[in-house]
């Protein structure tokens, strides 16, 4: 383990540069609006779990989301942003509404993935509500199936720009 740590200290970090202008603009806008940080609560409202895999990847050392002041939190009560995936199954619609209600104002909703956009491949089914917008107001859509971590970062930046 010490060898591993020593090697990590001696080598350049693997962390990528953020998408263009992400760190600076985020710093400024986030500071103005949100005091340097943005707390994100992820809600899976019926995804296939593909979107979760890529959202999780934001925490790996390549993307290292937290260096931007963006951070996943465990409760909607601690969150500024709900990051919602899935077509919103009817079985999850109430849980999503309740999570939204439990999030303090001001709050924003980001719908992640093609099925969160409008139900995607599942939209004709009896079991889905047809996208996040059908259940709670959406501030931003990040498309893709699933969107990759860079697209997710860019999307979150776009949201912050709009807030700024």
């Amino acid at each position: 383990m010490w060898k591993l740590i020593a090697r990590s200290l001696l080598h350049r970090p693997v962390t990528m540069k953020g998408p263009e202008a992400l760190p600076e603009s985020l710093d400024l806008k986030a500071r103005q609006k949100l005091g340097r940080s943005l707390a994100i609560r992820q809600v899976d409202a019926g995804s296939c779990n593909g979107c979760e895999l890529e959202i999780n990847a934001l925490n790996n050392p390549y993307y290292d989301l937290e260096r931007f002041g963006l951070k996943f939190v465990a409760s909607p009560r601690h969150a500024d942003v709900l990051l919602v995936t899935g077509p919103v199954t009817r079985n999850m619609a109430e849980a999503l509404q309740r999570t939204y209600a439990a999030t303090p104002d001001p709050k924003w909703v980001v719908a992640v993935g093609d099925c969160a956009f409008d139900g995607g491949l599942f939209k004709e089914g009896y079991a889905v509500s047809g996208g996040v917008g059908a259940v709670v107001p959406v501030d931003l859509h990040i498309r893709g199936c699933p969107p990759d971590p860079v697209a997710l970062l860019q999307g979150l930046l776009a949201l912050l720009e709009r807030l700024g």
Binding site: G46, G86, P87, T89, N91, G125, Y126, A127, V128
Partner: peptide, 11 residues
């Protein structure tokens, strides 16, 4: 379980 039932078989 069942919360993420999307009706895939019927689709």
């Amino acid at each position: 379980l069942g919360y993420v039932h999307k009706g895939i078989e019927s689709l």
